[in-house]
Nucleic acid binder design. Sequence first.
RNA 1: GGGUCGUUAGCUCAGUUGGUUAGAGUGCUGCCUUGACAUGGCAGAGGUCACAAGUUCAAAUCUUGUACGACCCA
Length: 878
Amino acid sequence: MLDKTFNPAAVEEKHYTLWEEKNAFAANHEAGKEPYTIMMPPPNVTGSLHMGHALTFTLQDILIRYNRMKGKDALWQPGTDHAGIATQMVVERRLEAEGVTRHDLGRDKFIDKIWEWKAQSGGTIVNQLRRLGASADWAKERFTMDEGLSEAVRKVFVELYKQDLIYRDKKLVNWDPKLHTAISDLEVEQREVNGKMWYFNYPLEGEDGKFVTVGTTRPETMLGDTGVAVHPDDERYKDLIGRNVILPIVNRAIPIVADEYADPEKGSGAVKITPGHDFNDYEVGKRCNLEIINVLDLNAHLNENVPEKYQGMDRFEARTKVVAEMEELGLLVKIEENPMTVPYGDRSGVVIEPWLTDQWFVKADVLAKPALEAVETGKTRFVPKQWENTYYEWMRNIQPWCISRQIWWGHQIPAWFDEDGNVYVEMTEEAAQKAAGEGVKLTRETDVLDTWFSSALWPFSTLGWPEKTPQLDHYYTTDVLVTGFDIIFFWVARMMMMGIHFMGEVPFKDIYIHALVRDEQGAKMSKSKGNVIDPLELIDQYGADAMRFTLTAMAAQGRDIKLATSRVEGYRNFATKLWNAARFCQINGCKPVKGLDAASVKHPVNRWIVGKVGEVAGEVGTAIDGYRFNESANAIYGFAWGTFCDWYLEFTKPILNGDDESAIEETRATTAWVFDQILHILHPMMPFITEELWESMADERDMQLISAAWPEKLLDDSDANEEMDWLVQLISTIRTTRSELNVPGSVALSVYLQGANEKTAQRLVRNENLIKRMARLGSINLVDEAVAHGCVQEVVGESTVFINVVDHMDVAAEKARLEKEIANLDKIIGGKEKKLANEKFVANAPADVVATERQKVQELSEKNAKFKEALARLTSAL
RNA sequence: GGGUCGUUAGCUCAGUUGGUUAGAGUGCUGCCUUGACAUGGCAGAGGUCACAAGUUCAAAUCUUGUACGACCCA
């Protein structure tokens, strides 16, 4: 016998271990089954499970478990990425505690330290995924720094280089002065800040007392100014073009140039140009042949190209100093408040500097074309569709992708330089040597590649590429990528580009973009706000199933999830409900009967529930296929609780407690069978409790639930369905009356049905005990004449129901109730009749809509007529 | 500044191609310790579907505009 309540902690670990022992998660490309593949977006190896992970992996697990039950060869390919910068930071911080820097160790030893750390702590997140119940094929787990994946990276790099799609160039890049590396545009976060605009006078050369006023938000960069730009049509400055100003402090003569970048409407209309430290100025400098002077070092301290007193000074300190000095010189005109956006490094949190360095770039625009086309032509489909626009927008305006990073942890770029600076890009040093010629001294590029470069290859590198493996053949193109919108650019777009370029086919058929998990108020969860909900704490508190089900039920397309723990609690209660339904089954001897042909059960109540459970299996399956996860959760929730527990189990109690042995036997078998079906349908969403109950409900099972087949619809008996619908209506009607009149539960009422047809009469006979029990009646009888006295009158189907509540009856209130009921029906019927009288409606609306309306008018009118008779009887009795 | 999305019951949200008497969960109210379950049962109240105009026989659903809000990009 099961315990009185479900204790998740007691079963979660047990079943996860059992699944792994039985290899239940393993895909098998040799099984001869149709593949179903999901590439798990590899979490950072430094990561730990947050709510976003919990959502995305729950949804993926549902898809995988469902398709596995549908008989597919389901591969959920797991792994982690090496998270270059993040991981390096983690290990550096640990070394810092020992007073050691990575430079003390040197590159090789430092990398050894990272591998040590990875061996020790790198498994955190994948273990947390196990707590969530993720049924990934762990035997195939990969890591972006694996030997095989690293080879794939080298191969891709070399090929793209030889195809002229990767190049090396000296350009302004986003430089992180804390981490000492370039980063891509995407890793830069634009923050709104309240800055200032300083206006400086630059003296005109050779004309004492004449100035050009320029505005700047970054005074310290003036030390690197090499020009002043004005708009070519700006009358104020027309005659100054070609002359020089003397750059204060530095005392350098710099030219005034004409360029349309200068906006006459903004500030003074003249703008100082610092080509070495601003992306726009860099372009202006190129157009106008201005000198590029770099005044910052890798720490964003001022370097040897500025006056001595400024050298070595931090950029922000220099800003204050420059302003002070300009003021002393009498050249500070004014200071204005200026709201502006400032670039910050998303990892380091410091202000990013545009900095001139040698970097490697991918010609993303070339790769983007076929990737764009794949979505336009529907080879890959975004769900929800609207995300296409985000993707298009980015792909159509794509910039060269800076892929080199000046860090140590990552795939070192396979490029070698000779002493003349010639570069050789090859898979191995030997090949590079061969290309360079014997005896040429080569030095390897020290930069590593952006982590996203290797994760862009994930859909095929994990399957063995560049080898032509059977797995690659079988599982690529994958079925769906499930991810959040925040990495459409970072990852999705790049996988599309690389997948199409190297495999010739798109990496996934569908891209399902799910919501963001927010807090109850709708704010983004963040450590600094302190509103983070830890999924592991939720699992400890409510169980993994309850948390998974909550996320599933709230995962409506295109909506963010505002997570409230009250919802988790609600679904924990659902688990308890299920648990107790199982206990009920056990107590009543409802045990699965092997070989039961559910389609041939006899009793209407059993035929009805067998039909309904098949229906809901279809609904849930269709919803999952369409990525409408919330619908799938709601459908099975409503069925398990509302239909099965609240109605079916109550309907069958009189049978089980009766003396018809064959009916008892059939009902026990059906109950157990239906409950089994519920466990199947619920399993993808709540794997632990369903597996546990699957195990406990029978003495012996042929297999684990995880490996069982998804239920099929077996039966749809409309007679049985109508009978049960009638029962539900009749019982609900009597219950409502009881409740409204406050009839105590202990009072057994008498009920009379008048005007019942033959079918109803038979139904009444068949279900008399059941109705009496569920509606708490002393008797229920068919009558020919109305029994108005002391009765509340209701209408169910074709018959009028007289509920004898003589001691509780308030005739005036009853009259009011009937009048209200009639008025309501009159209104509805009136509306419909008006509609039907409209020739245009009859002419234009589809025939079935018109027919439905006619039928409704008919039914409602009959019902209304009965209420009117009831009212008349009541009035005459007064 | 460009773009995307949202506004439906007190709260959180469903509502597939226009045709339902507009639904669910939660909260609220009343009754019920009935032999699976009080983490429960039964019943109930609660909505001019943000606003305005338009298209249509028919609009929560389509179009346009307004207001408010969210997010992405520059």
